[in-house]
């Protein structure tokens, strides 16, 4: 289903996108199973309509937004981004979406808010694997407020000009292109502004393997493998991983003065 009125963005990348079939059939979405092909096989169970997103926490008035309204918040932009998985593979994805900051215009965030949490749906009827203790459900990811407000951080609602496919986190997901892919929470139902740095799902699952920041960094290895190279899907040999996934120019100043080995 084609999304109307999608326009190009200044932030889009001039790289050849990974084929659509690959993007929808390969990835991690543990709510539908632990294997790379699980979401492609099982996500047909997801019901992306009706859908609403609760925004709460450090906001003046907690509100529930309907997905149909969210889609009208801002003009939809095509954003072709690199996607680097913490596991060492990568692809190039032509997302359709709009900046996260559009949400900030619609809720009055209090001065206390320092971080924002993104909660995914965890409905055992639609997502068979949330019955298993693979992770601490529901899936939750988080960003520092300035990271969330960076113009590169988007809510994605589409892919290749079409409505976001179920395996990729329909109907609404987060995309933070300079961080490892798991930071992009899928099928978001709740957004919470908070004072403290949240302990995210993957931090709970492996505190020494997955940090809060999880910026793509070739110099900081994962506990069990190097992050210096990655395999772009469709290529046989590995290529070098770029600092901040190639977005250093845009985002490095967010981390000025921080020891990125400590805050990995």
């Amino acid at each position: 289903e084609k999304l109307p009125g999608v326009r190009p963005s200044q932030w889009t990348l001039d790289e050849k996108p990974t084929p659509y079939e690959t993007i929808v059939s390969y990835g991690n979405f543990y709510e539908f199973g632990p294997d790379k092909d699980s979401p492609g096989k099982n996500a047909y169970r997801l019901r992306p309509r009706p859908w609403s997103v609760l925004v709460e926490g450090e906001v003046k008035k907690p509100q529930r937004f309907d997905i149909e309204d969210i889609l009208k918040w801002a003009p939809l932009e095509e954003r072709t981004y690199r996607m680097r998985c913490v596991e060492g593979w990568s692809m190039v994805v032509p997302w359709v979406g709009f900046p996260f900051s559009e949400l900030m215009k619609r809720v009055e965030v209090t001065g206390n808010a320092k971080y924002v949490e993104f909660w995914s749906l965890a409905d055992p009827e639609q997502m068979p694997y949330v019955r298993l203790p693979l992770l601490d459900w529901p899936y939750m990811e988080g960003l520092r407020l300035d990271e969330a407000m960076h113009p590169l951080t988007i809510f994605a609602v589409g892919l290749y000009g079409e409505v976001l496919p179920k395996p990729n986190g329909a109907p609404l997901r987060l995309v933070v292109p300079w961080k490892y892919g798991f930071k992009g929470a899928k099928s978001i139902v709740r957004i919470r502004f908070v004072r403290e740095m949240p302990r995210t799902t993957w931090m709970k699952a492996g505190p020494d393997e997955y940090g809060f920041y999880s910026n793509v960094n070739p110099d900081v290895p994962h506990r069990r493998w190097s992050q210096s190279h990655e395999r772009r899907l469709g290529e046989f040999l590995k290529r070098k991983t770029l600092p901040f996934n190639g977005y250093a120019e845009q985002v490095a100043q967010l981390y000025a003065g921080m020891d990125l080995r400590k805050f990995f």
Binding site: K36, D37, W89
Partner: peptide
């Protein structure tokens, strides 16, 4: 495996 290599049957990440 040889068959899958010849006929592109190794999926999106053939090396893996």
């Amino acid at each position: 495996l040889a068959w899958a290599i010849a006929f592109d049957g190794l999926g999106p990440n053939p090396v893996e």
